[in-house]
Write a protein that binds this DNA or RNA. Structure first.
Length: 137
DNA sequence: GCCAACGTTGGC
DNA sequence: GCCAACGTTGGC
């Protein structure tokens, strides 16, 4: 099982909307590194759902429901999407500021390379963030 | 709204 | 294939 972190601007697609939809395909990735991460996702992997721009916090957990397939929204086979479904919200959102202060998270993709919209997490990082959010895996 | 970080593009 | 210019992202 692998662990990931995906970012979304709440204006564009919020956690609330995600929960309401029950499932979504993760499109709009136009960055090769992020794309490669998407391709590495396996069904059943877990991903933290992060709100950028507003909130600046990890707000919930998603699960990969379907592995990467060509982006249906554009005619360009360079880009792929994955299907995600919500698992649960964190009891307590974990903010970027908290994660920056947290020993053990200094190598997180989100902190080292803030602009990357899809990044990989280690199991330790993933579990630490959940713990900070008062949530059991 | 500003600015830093980073990726991409295009001229040579 | 290098590198400067430019565009985009996202935190502050």
């Amino acid at each position: 099982m692998n662990y990931w972190l995906v970012k979304s601007e709440p204006f564009k697609y919020s956690w609330e909307q995600f929960v309401k939809d029950g499932k979504t395909f993760w499109d709009g990735v136009r960055n090769y590194q992020a794309r490669n991460n998407l391709r590495d996702m396996k069904k059943g992997d877990r991903a933290l759902f992060y709100h950028s721009n507003e909130g600046l916090c990890v707000i919930g957990i998603a699960e990969i429901a379907k592995e990467a397939y060509p982006d249906p929204t554009i005619d360009d086979d360079r880009w792929v999407v994955v299907d995600l479904k919500p698992v649960k919200a964190l009891k307590q959102p974990v903010t970027l500021a908290e994660m920056k202060q947290q020993p053990g998270l200094e190598n997180m993709g989100l902190i080292r390379q803030g602009r990357l919209s899809v990044s990989a997490l280690t199991k330790e990082e993933y579990e630490l963030v959940l713990k900070m959010g008062g949530t059991k895996p």
